[in-house]
Design a protein around this nucleic acid. Structure first.
Lengths: 186, 186
DNA sequence: GAGCCCATGTAATCAGTTACATGATTAC
DNA sequence: GTAATCATGTAACTGATTACATGGGCTC
């Protein structure tokens, strides 16, 4: 999904809260944003440089001994403007690639039991995600009043919960259908 | 999500049913597969050439006057093997990019009403999708006994229904939460 | 002593999109 | 006459991942 570098926006959004290094940014993305928008180091560091050139951020270098110096980025006024501008335009269409559905679509090429196995694997893989999201939600509910931001974080977690819940429901129904098909065959 | 060209598999899967041109493949993808795995012309034509080189497909040229000749591809035994082999390994993790959640996560930067507007836009955009999927499902239920493939198609549609249903539920709850927050402010 | 955390980055490669080029036929 | 459908493709570009490079400090 090229054209217009979206990577700048999560970075701007995070820097709008507090100054951070690329490494810090990566950590927060992994913890809270990664489940709907993942970004790797290989994108963060070059993007930060680009953003500096565009005067969306500035940085201050903190000397470190032993390890590389910390480069702490701060958002500029221009950066804040860009962030706001982006937030005012409607969100683009969801971009998804579901290999599980691609394989299910062509499922008839292999045995019914092979399909069941695959879907059960999908289910167990996503059960962990749902549990994680639920834990996350509980924590957020506790600190909901401390900041207006928390409600927005909660909304994203609620989304994750709903969608992952839908995954599991589907997996159960799908396996049930396939099993009843297997029985008819006997 | 680079590494290993997944594009070959939907193409193999479709050619496993019947011989097709690149144009035909694109059409079927748009109709039935695109909602979970979209592919453009710019990927199909080069991939078909690559697949021919790898002997996963062969082709026969049908002369046409006026328009370009039709290049009709057929799957080879090697292609069928590859398809089966791929179907036997567990599906990889879902790849998603939800701009709607990225914007919601940073929603506190703009007004509550701006957030409501965005989510309502998201909702109406996805209402159409759900309606389409429901229509699709009805058609499939009617022809379910004609081919074993149809159940697998149905499973993918059911997935879409569940997930898009979750989208809409979330949108309603999110808007309700934001509206009650707006009222408290007054 | 093994492995993880901190902390930066680059280069190579691959995946995916968009724009361009061509042009006849058919339906409204 | 205008737009959609049929039908092929290439080139330029951007987005994203993976692998490589470096290396000290801390925990088990």
């Amino acid at each position: 999904m090229p054209k217009e570098n979206k990577t700048v926006y999560p970075i701007l959004g995070l820097l709008n809260h507090k100054n951070m290094t690329g490494y810090d940014i990566k950590k927060r993305i992994d913890e809270e944003i990664g489940f709907f928008w993942d970004i790797g180091f290989g994108q963060i560091y070059p993007t930060l440089k680009y953003m500096e050139k565009e005067e969306l951020v500035t940085n201050r270098i903190e000397a470190s001994d032993g390890r590389p110096n910390r480069i702490v980025y701060s958002i500029t006024d221009r950066g804040r403007e860009e962030l706001k501008k982006w937030l005012m335009v409607p969100a683009e269409k969801e971009y998804v690639k579901y290999e599980i559905l691609l394989k299910t679509f062509f499922g008839n090429v292999v045995s019914t039991s092979e399909n069941i196995k695959r879907i059960e694997d999908f289910k167990s893989r996503n059960q962990g995600n749902l549990a994680m999201l639920k834990g996350f939600k509980e924590n957020l509910l506790e600190v909901l009043d401390y900041s207006d931001d928390h409600m927005y974080y909660l909304l994203t977690v609620m989304f994750g919960e709903k969608v992952h819940g839908a995954y599991l429901e589907w997996a159960d129904e799908a396996v049930a259908m396939l099993k009843s098909k297997e029985e008819k065959r006997e």
